[in-house]
C-alpha cells in the first residue's frame, strides 16, 4: 500500500512535469532531495542517540514498572472480560507506560506479551476478542507525555521551543483516545445485542465480556 502511494507520487510528479515542460528539473530535484534527506537523517542522528541513551537509563531505573503499576488500575475497567489478577493487565499497563514516556522501542515487547496473555483467554484463536480490539485502540491512539521524535525534529530545525508541542500533542491524543474508546464501547454493545438476538452467530463474541 505504501509502495503504491510512494510510486504514485513520483509518477504523477514526473508525468505532470513532462506535460508542463519542467521535465529537465526532475533530475536536479531528485538528487537535491536525496542529498537533503541524507543530511537531515544525519542531523537527527545526534538527537536519537542521546534520547535512546537516556531512555535506556529510564528503563533500567525501573521507571517503567512504577508507571505501569500506576496505570494498571486505571485501565482495569476497560477490560471487563479479563479476570482480576490476570497477567494481561500489568503487561498492558507497562506497554501504555512505555508509550506515555515516549519509549517506543520498549513498548513493543510488553504489547506482544499483553497480546499473548489476552490470546490465552480467547475461545476462537483466529478471531480477535473485544478486549484485544480495545487494547489495540488504546495503543494506537495512545497519548504520549514526551513525543520524542517530533521534539527531536523541531530541535534540529531550530525551533524556538522544541518542546512547546508537548501540551497540544497530549491534549490532541487524549481527545482522540476518549472519542475512540466511546465508539469502541458502542461497537461492543452492538455485538452483544446481536448475540442476545441470536440472529446469526458471529465469531469472537465468546462467553465473557
Amino acid at each position: 500500500m505504501l509502495s503504491i502511494i510512494w510510486a504514485g507520487m513520483i509518477i504523477l510528479a514526473v508525468a505532470y512535469a513532462a506535460v508542463t515542460g519542467g521535465a529537465e528539473e526532475i533530475t536536479t530535484v531528485l538528487f537535491a532531495q536525496a542529498a537533503r534527506g541524507v543530511t537531515m537523517a544525519l542531523e537527527v542522528m545526534s538527537i536519537i542517540t542521546v534520547w535512546f541513551g537516556l531512555s535506556r537509563i529510564a528503563a533500567k531505573a525501573g521507571l517503567l514498572p512504577a508507571f505501569g503499576r500506576l496505570i494498571a488500575p486505571l485501565i482495569r475497567p476497560l477490560f471487563p472480560g479479563v479476570p482480576a489478577g490476570h497477567p494481561a493487565i500489568p503487561a498492558m499497563g507497562m506497554n501504555l507506560a512505555a508509550n506515555l514516556l515516549g519509549l517506543a522501542n520498549a513498548a513493543t515487547p510488553f504489547g506482544l506479551e499483553a497480546m499473548r496473555a489476552l490470546q490465552r483467554l480467547n475461545p476462537l484463536p483466529r478471531t480477535a476478542t473485544p478486549a484485544m480490539v480495545t487494547f489495540l485502540v488504546l495503543n494506537s491512539a495512545c497519548a504520549t507525555l514526551v513525543p520524542s521524535t517530533a521534539i527531536a525534529l523541531r530541535a534540529n530545525a531550530g525551533a524556538q521551543q522544541p518542546s512547546a508541542i508537548i501540551a497540544p500533542a497530549f491534549l490532541a491524543s487524549s481527545v482522540a483516545l476518549a472519542a475512540v474508546l466511546i465508539i469502541d464501547r458502542l461497537w461492543r454493545w452492538r455485538y452483544r445485542r446481536e448475540k442476545v438476538a441470536g440472529s446469526r452467530s458471529r465469531p469472537g463474541k465468546g462467553g465473557r465480556r
Binding site: L12, G22, I26, Q33, G37, A41, L42, V44
Partner: peptide
C-alpha cells in the same frame, strides 16, 4: 536514512513539479 531519502525524494518531486 533510506526511509528519509525515499520520502524526501517523493515529497520533493511532488511539490517541485507543481502537482
Amino acid at each position: 536514512i533510506p526511509y528519509i531519502v525515499a520520502i524526501f525524494v517523493a515529497v520533493g518531486l511532488f511539490r517541485e513539479s507543481g502537482v
